[in-house]
Nucleic acid binder design. Structure first.
Length: 821
RNA sequence: GCCCUGGUGGUGGAAUCGGUAGACACGUCGGACUUAAAAUCCGAUGAGGCUAAUAACUUCGUGCCAGUUCAAGUCUGGCCCAGGGCACCA
């Protein structure tokens, strides 16, 4: 029996528990049905679910349920990205064990997810901080290592003083730590890197294959990879025999305009290039540069400074002798760390040359060129000997060719992308499975030695070095090669390594022999629909693409891209601004479950805004959705006992009144199906629910004229349409009406194209493109009939009277436009 | 500076192909029911003009300016603004 009024709290938990017992959402690794892999970005177990999670997982859940109803074998898994700093910081602050803290959070949040009614196959749950998972993270690291894709090197790396660890380039946002906003400094450390740059070209080219990704994400990755085509040119140093300075340039066409050369303060040969009389000034300059923060140094506003080194280069094209200077506008880690300066045709060189009174030579001219002003556009070469008169774009090619022939240059493609630094000086991560032996050096562990378990006897409070160094039991081991006493690597891996392959593990989550079975992973991948936040555009979403390509080359799987379709959902705002604890405008999902039920939360978070846009959470909106659910529920409650699960009618014999409702049902099915298939426009889907519900209310206004077969058809259609969104209410109603099994196992509704439109049309009558009349007419009248109808309109006659009809435009079933003079 | 996304009522947002701009809601106002309130149900709601009028009619209206077209929120060109990304990248 249904209650008289909708009260979600009475039945939501009942169904949650029932589904827990029966696991109706189990995905099968062998099924005849076509597969559909619906994936959400896995949560970090921070303690409680927030509304961003609710939005993310509701979207994925509705997609998964829709596809299931359409007959797909759906894989919709969930897991925990559970290594990372917050657990460790909690350990430091409250003396808790990071593992206990994390697992407790998982337990709580898992309950919250279940309460949200997700159709997740929990038998495939993955927890990245547990040994049965990180064993395979370590194993995969070793595969990359063996393939030469993981290497250790000493380099200046990004250091966050607050997090006490290094960061990857992608984790530095505007010179600050992505996690805590602390300004990042540089440190020289020996660290592990993954060779993502080996895949620069493929990562860039394959973006084109990703038709199901938004342009915003693709452009971000495109910019991040930052490909540019140019040339390396080598300049002999006049004072030092055998020493050359190579530069990278995209403007080889301007070589005849070079008047000086600039090297970065960290340029390796800088000391050789400095003459004794300049030594003091140069060192002072370099020390100052070191002190400048990354943010200051990267500011384009800053006035450019530099000092001469005292040495010179000879321009091989002109024989001209040009001074070499150090200036911090040259960057050591891009190109060669040295820049050829052509002040007349480069803004930066221009500013710098003006400040220090360095000479300028014009070598390009073109439209908009002005004497004495910097000209950076394309044009025609001047003052360039045999290249004078050549188009500048062509000259780039020709001059580089010339340089190559003469042996002082070559073509060069440059990328901005850097290798991925994955060492972290923190405890709560997967240990790096490498040991250092005094005899054998760097040695990879063997498979049988995995996992390298995290030790418990650790002092978390150490700062500036890895906490693992404080564990004697962990630090010392024996060399797998020679058995001598050896030391382990004391860093852990970036958590983004763990999250780069979790969705592969879902396909075969309980396999304890392999990280995943090759056939199974090939079968499920690529992910058909991935849903998550845009903030991972150049983090997770780039790393994971690299990972799959690397694992393919390690011969572990057979596809090139992991994600076929990507939906990046917008943020959840509260009353127009970002939800945050400091502003005190957060909404706790538990409160919503308690006061309105999970169905209301699900319905509301999908309404109002399309998924990709930001969503504004308002109390009034929640209230409105709750009322709508109550309105739907009342329909079923009111007619309980009269609603038939099996109904029977022939549309041809129905009254206009009945036929109209049947049509409204078919229209609703058609539009809702299309809206979901067309970029998951759930906001309009929910509008259609309301429209169709309003139609049913219209239909029942006169209780005496109700045909219960027709009404049952409409109500059962509505129930099925709404079931992916309001999962509990749909099940409750279906069960109360005596439905067998679960409403969530019913197939999706079909529609009849002929019935999915109104029987009549409103013909729009225009005169000279302006609407003058609207006429009710039958569907499908021929053009000549429509024209007759339009011309018969009194208003049209009034307006055409005494004028000539030039032409008539007819759009079938829609519009007639009469053009008069 | 370069790139991406967007700009529609008081608000969130609708509008396959160029073909009724503002679906569906929120809000507001009014009505029914009620002793009263809540809930519910019904109705009005882009701006202006004309009007006794809520009827009829009419003008304007999708960031701005042009253009194409019988017809433009939608297409083309040029701008403006907002949000996001990249950037002393040579």
């Amino acid at each position: 029996m249904l209650e008289k009024e909708y009260y979600a709290q009475k039945f939501e938990e009942k169904w949650m528990n029932k589904w827990e017992e029966t696991n109706p959402y189990k995905a099968l690794n062998n099924s005849d049905k076509p597969k559909f892999y619906a994936l959400s970005m896995l949560p970090y177990p921070s303690g409680k679910l927030h509304m961003g999670h609710v939005r993310n997982y509701t979207i994925t859940d509705v997609i998964a349920r829709f596809k299931k109803a359409q007959g797909y074998n759906v894989l919709h898994p969930m897991g925990w990205d559970s290594f990372g700093l917050p657990a460790e910081n909690a350990a430091i602050q409250h003396g808790a064990d990071p593992e206990t803290w994390t697992l407790e959070n998982i337990k709580y949040m898992k309950q919250q997810l279940k309460r949200l009614g997700l159709s997740v196959d929990w038998s495939r749950e993955v927890t990245t901080c547990l040994p049965d998972y990180y064993k395979w993270t370590q194993w995969l690291f070793l595969q990359l290592y063996k393939k030469g894709l993981a290497y250790k090197k000493t380099a200046p790396v990004n250091w966050c003083e607050k997090c006490h660890t290094v960061l990857a380039n992608e984790q530095v946002i505007d010179g600050k730590c992505w996690r805590c906003d602390t300004e990042v400094t540089k440190k020289n450390l020996s660290q592990w890197f993954l060779k993502i740059t080996e895949y620069s070209e493929e990562l860039l080219n394959d973006l084109e294959k990703l038709k199901g990704w938004g342009d915003n994400v693709k452009t971000m990755q495109h910019n991040w990879i930052g490909k540019s085509k140019g040339a390396i040119l080598k300049f002999k140093v006049k004072e030092i025999e055998g020493l050359e300075i190579p530069v990278y340039t995209t403007r080889a066409d301007t070589v005849y305009g070079i008047t000086y050369l600039v090297v970065a303060p960290e340029y390796p040969d800088i000391e050789k290039l400095t003459t004794p009389e300049n030594k003091e000034k140069v060192e002072e300059y370099r020390n100052n540069a070191k002190k400048l923060s990354e943010i200051e140094r990267l500011s384009t506003e800053r006035i450019k400074t530099g000092v001469p080194l005292g040495t010179h280069i000879i321009n091989p094209f002109t024989g001209r002798v040009c001074p070499v200077l150090v200036a911090d506008y040259a960057l050591v880690d891009y190109g060669t760390g040295a820049v050829m300066a052509v002040p007349y045709h480069d803004e930066r060189d221009f500013d710098f040359a003006k400040k220090y009174n360095l000479p300028m030579i014009q070598v390009i001219t073109g439209d908009g060129f002005e004497e004495g002003k910097c000209y950076t556009e394309k044009g025609t070469l001047v003052n360039s000997e045999q290249f004078t008169g050549m188009d500048s774009v062509k000259a780039r090619e020709e001059i580089t060719k010339y340089a190559a022939e003469k042996g002082f240059g070559e073509f060069k493609t440059q990328y901005r992308l850097r290798d991925w630094l994955i060492s972290r000086q923190r405890y709560w991560g997967a240990p790096i499975p490498i040991v250092y032996c005094p005899h054998c050096g760097e040695v990879a562990l063997e498979d049988k030695d995995l996992p390298v378990l995290l030790p418990k006897d650790v002092d978390f409070s150490v700062q500036g070095k890895s906490p693992l160094a404080t564990s004697e039991s962990f630090k010392y081991t024996t060399c797998p090669k020679c058995g001598a006493k050896a030391e382990r690597d004391l860093d852990t891996m970036d958590t983004f390594v763990c999250s780069s392959w979790y969705y592969l593990r879902y396909t075969d989550a309980n396999n304890d022999k392999e990280c995943f079975n090759r056939d199974i992973v090939n079968k499920w991948l690529p992910v058909d629909q991935y849903v998550g936040g845009i903030e991972h555009a150049v983090l997770h979403l780039l790393y994971t693409r690299f990972f799959v390509k690397a694992l393919r080359d390690c011969n572990l799987l057979d596809f090139d891209e992991p994600i076929k379709n990507l939906l990046t959902q917008g943020m959840v705002l509260k009353d127009g601004s970002k939800m945050s604890k400091s502003k005190g405008n957060t909404v706790d999902p538990d409160d919503i479950y308690k006061n309105y039920g999970a169905d209301t939360a699900r319905l509301f978070i999908l309404s109002d805004s399309p998924p990709a846009r930001d969503f504004d959470w308002t109390d009034a909106g929640v209230e409105g959705c709750y009322k709508f659910l109550a309105r739907v529920y009342r329909l079923y409650s009111k007619f309980e006992g009269k609603i038939k699960l099996e109904y029977n009618f022939d549309v041809k014999n129905l009254s206009k009144h009945d036929e109209n409702l049947v049509r409204q049902a078919h229209i609703a099915v058609k539009k809702i199906t299309n809206d979901i298939e067309n970029e998951f426009q759930f906001n309009t889907v929910i509008s259609r629910y309301r429209e169709f519900t309003n139609s049913i209310y219209d239909y029942i206004k006169d209780e005496n004229s109700i045909n219960y077969d027709v009404l049952s058809f409409a109500l059962m259609t509505l129930l099925k349409l709404i079931s992916p969104v309001t999962v509990f209410m749909a099940e409750e109603i279906y069960s109360a009406l005596g439905g067998k099994g679960s409403v969530h196992n019913l197939p999706w509704c079909e529609y009849d194209e002929n019935l999915a439109k109104d029987s009549n049309i409103t013909l729009i009558v225009q005169v000279n493109g302006k609407i003058k009349d609207k006429i009710e007419a039958e569907q499908g009248l021929p053009d000549c009939e429509l024209e007759k109808l339009a011309l018969a309109s009194p208003k049209v006659q009034e307006l055409t009277n005494g004028k000539t009809v030039v032409k008539t435009i007819i759009v079938p079933n829609k519009l007639v436009n009469i053009v008069v003079k």
